[in-house]
Design a protein around this nucleic acid. Structure first.
Length: 785
DNA sequence: AGAATGGACTTTTTT
DNA sequence: AGTCCATTCT
């Protein structure tokens, strides 16, 4: 048996096939062909938007397989999202066979190297069952340390500190060297916390996202034998979206490519939009310096968009200084003008978008999936969602909080992590008293104290509880918890993962907690946890021959930490897509709406102040524009609801930078920034514009075409009387069975009453929102006769 | 211990 | 507007 059976080494292509290779090349243009054929040595593909770069990468991999330059397991392809990897694998499967595609190493940096780290964990002082911490978990660690080190969390936010530490890690700056970069209070705090933070993660047997990139480098540096093995193993390296790789990723790839030097990177400097996350554009700009013998291929033909859309995109990107020179062109038709939608409020903007979609859908028969609505910040999705819901258009939304970040899922996952990896203090903290089981802050304080003093994990403190003299009630509660978790930990290898998870969550009381709340929201949460359990069962099915329950569960938990919303998407439901501009990278849609083109929103105020960041915002705008195939709409609103109040806004400076010759207004008129109808005026003037019928409501034009809302807001029924009112309390008691009306919940039926006077509470079942418990003094219920 | 109430604060973008 | 946190109430 081989010590490391990560991959099957069976050659999957028996004979080199020139015919197959020719077939793979035949669908490509000259430049793409060149990129595919340059198979040995370093290659950089500078690919413009919509030039078929993913397609080219895919054909390149298929070509290597057809010519039998490598076995599938010797090819590594690193993509920006899991979804991109999955799609590429599917399409390669169609070219050369699914069995071969299955064995390719494909995925994001994070997912590929988390698997490597799992294998080699013991070489860097970790256990293979390590937890992977997201930003929330990591912030929890920082907060804990700040308390322990008496750093005021109000003076410096844990989030800011974490961001500093994260960027230091991205740049491979070690804790000991961080002092040199200190500049300001946040840096100081970060400098003090960096090493303790790393130590704490290790004690928790946990890694954060950055560790998944740094630890492989540490591993390779400390163990050249391991590095050599992977260098040998991966004969061909492919990296998509190279412009968005950070320094750590750069170092990893340089290490891995050192032997064979068969590295092929694909990217577009004009689409670099992740600098805030440490993406380092010099990686792509300096590729030729690192590999002087590199073949550079430019893909400049755009297959996606109309001439006018391309012209518009070109006009905006030209405003940026630093970029690799390239000229995009297309054979596509010139298409329609780009339409500018000027709205009075964000609600009006959303309505206009909705109406345009409806109109095109009805008159031209385009399916809903052809439409995308893009925005700068997640918060903007709400008004758009409302409009689509009112109009009855099906939609799906990416981003915001994804499935695995929901509270109930994080709670459930924390239980499972704790069983798999008991030293995970963060997970323990999260669930030890949820659902409540009498372990309060006091008890946990003491546990933390002992843990800190003796350098133990919380779990190990629980294990020696009897020596610590806790009060009997607390002792019993803690011991019961330890016993429960310990029992499942002991069953890890004997029980199937899905079954174990189900029983644990039931015994912990999590399912019941969600059930008994008896609201629509709680039911949805309960269903989410069920879905998690199903996912475990499904995963287990796939790995049924792969060993025991331990491996299934801990691998599942690790993979799940790296999934995003888009990864869960089937992609084939017929719905309008809503997402941030960032999330739209790599995608295309026949019709695209870019919304919220306003100063202080796009570009964001922080970015507008800094030329570098402003250029990145501009690239983001470029990315948005180039998502569109047929038709593009640019929308902005004069007022927007922000931080709880209405704010006037000015149209984005980006609109003034555009080539106006391909722009028209909604009415069909030519648009030019000079003649623009008072758009970019002062705030006061804009305020005058807004003072129509009512702020943020429907307006003359749009109101006429807007269909009535599907579900009218609940109206107080006639013949009502106030039920709770100082005067009436005595004379108007509510009794179970009584029908009542509540201002925001609508009508409902009283199920039970408890307490008297000011303490009186009623349990009411509302038709719209389910069961609620209300304090009569505040609820202002009205009796419905 | 735990629930409830009131206040401050918030929003970039994400693997 | 919603969320998180601290303080107060039961």
């Amino acid at each position: 048996m081989k010590p490391y059976t990560l991959f099957s080494d069976t050659p999957s292509v028996q004979e080199p096939s020139q015919d197959a290779a020719q077939a793979i090349l035949s669908g490509l243009n000259t430049s793409q062909r060149q990129a595919v054929e340059a198979s040995d040595g370093p290659v950089m593909i500078i690919a413009g938007a919509g030039s078929g770069k993913t397609r080219t990468l895919m054909h390149r991999i298929a070509y290597l397989l057809a010519l039998r330059k490598a076995w599938p397991s010797q090819i590594l392809a690193l993509t920006f999202t899991n979804k991109a990897a999955r799609e590429m694998r599917e399409r390669i499967g169609k070219l050369v066979g699914e069995d071969k595609a299955k064995e390719l190493w494909m995925g994001t940096f994070h997912s590929v190297f988390s698997r490597i780290l799992r294998r080699e964990a013991n070489r860097i002082g970790y256990n293979q069952d390590f937890s992977i911490y997201d930003t929330d978990d990591a912030q929890g660690v920082i907060k804990g340390l700040m308390t322990a080190m008496a750093i005021d969390a109000k003076a410096v936010s844990p989030r800011a500190i974490l961001h500093k530490i994260s960027s230091a890690k991205n740049q491979l700056i070690r804790p000991a060297d961080y002092g040199r970069y200190v500049n300001g209070v946040v840096d100081e705090a970060a400098a003090r916390l960096y090493q303790p933070y790393q130590d704490q993660l290790r004690r928790n047997n946990a890694m954060d996202f950055d560790d998944l990139l740094i630890k492989p480098i540490e591993l390779f540096q400390k163990h050249p034998d391991i590095l050599a093995r992977y260098q040998e193993r991966w004969k061909y390296l492919h990296i998509d979206e190279y412009q968005d790789t950070n320094h750590a990723q750069y170092v990893i790839t340089r290490m891995l490519a050192a032997t064979h030097k068969n590295i092929c990177v694909v990217g577009d400097d004009a689409q670099s939009i992740y600098a805030f996350r440490g993406a380092d554009i010099t990686n792509i700009l300096d590729f030729q310096k690192d590999y002087p013998q590199a073949v550079i291929v430019r893909l400049e033909q755009n297959y996606r968009s109309t001439k006018k859309i391309l012209q518009l995109a070109d006009s905006i990107i030209k405003k940026n200084k630093d970029q690799i020179d390239k000229t995009l062109w297309t054979d596509n038709s010139s298409g329609d003008d780009i339409t500018l939608l000027e709205a009075l409020s964000e609600k009006d903007e959303a309505t206009k978008v909705e109406q345009n979609i409806r109109h095109i859908h009805l008159n031209y028969g385009l399916p809903y999936r052809s439409f995308a609505i893009l925005y700068r910040t997640n918060a903007q999705s709400r008004s758009l969602e409302d409009a689509l819901r009112r109009g009855g258009l099906p939609y799906k939304i990416y981003g915001g909080i994804n499935f695995y970040q929901r509270k109930e899922i994080k709670d459930a996952v924390a239980y499972l992590r704790l069983v798999v990896n008991p030293t995970d203090n963060e997970s323990l903290k999260r669930v030890i008293n949820y659902p409540t089981r009498g372990i309060g802050a006091k008890s946990m304080e003491r546990v933390a104290e002992v843990a800190h003093k003796e350098g133990l994990a919380y779990w190990h403190v629980l294990e020696k509880l009897s020596q610590l003299g806790f009060p009997p009630a607390a002792h019993q509660a803690l011991d019961k918890f330890r016993f429960m978790i310990g029992k499942y930990a002991a069953h890890l290898s004997s029980l199937p993962a899905a079954e174990l998870a189900r029983e644990l969550l039931a015994e912990a009381g999590l399912m019941q907690e969600l059930r008994q709340e008896n609201t629509v929201e709680a039911l949805a949460r309960w269903e989410n946890v069920q879905e998690l359990l199903n996912a475990i069962a499904e995963y287990e099915q796939e790995f049924i021959d792969d060993g025991n329950g331990t491996i299934v569960l801990s691998r599942f938990l690790q993979e799940v930490s790296l999934l995003t919303d888009a990864d869960n998407d089937e992609g084939n439901d017929n719905k309008v897509t809503l997402m941030t501009l960032h999330a739209s990278k790599g995608l295309e849609f026949p019709i695209v709406f870019l919304t919220g083109l306003e100063e202080n929103l796009f570009p964001l105020p922080q970015a507008a102040a800094d030329p570098k960041q402003l250029e990145e915002e501009r690239r983001l705008f470029y990315v948005g524009i180039t998502r569109a195939q047929e038709k593009l709409y640019l929308a902005f609103a004069r007022t927007r609801f922000k931080y709880g109040k209405w704010e006037d806004s000015l149209r984005s400076r980006f609109l003034d930078e555009l080539d106006a010759s391909v722009l028209k207004t909604e009415g069909g008129g030519r648009w030019s920034s000079q003649k623009a109808t008072g758009i970019r005026t002062t705030a006061t003037e804009a305020g005058r514009w807004r003072s129509g019928p009512t702020q943020g409501n429907s307006y003359r034009v749009s109101a006429m075409n807007t269909p009535p809302p599907l579900k009218a807001t609940p109206k107080p029924p006639q013949g009502r009387r106030m039920v709770y009112d100082e005067e009436y309390t005595a004379s108007q008691p509510i009794v179970p069975g009584q029908k009542v009306y509540h201002e925001s919940f609508g009508t409902g039926k009283v199920i039970a009453i408890e307490g008297v006077g000011d303490q009186a509470k009623a349990t009411v079942f509302f038709r719209e929102v389910g069961q609620k418990k209300l304090v009569l003094r505040f609820a202002k219920l009205q009796v419905v006769e």
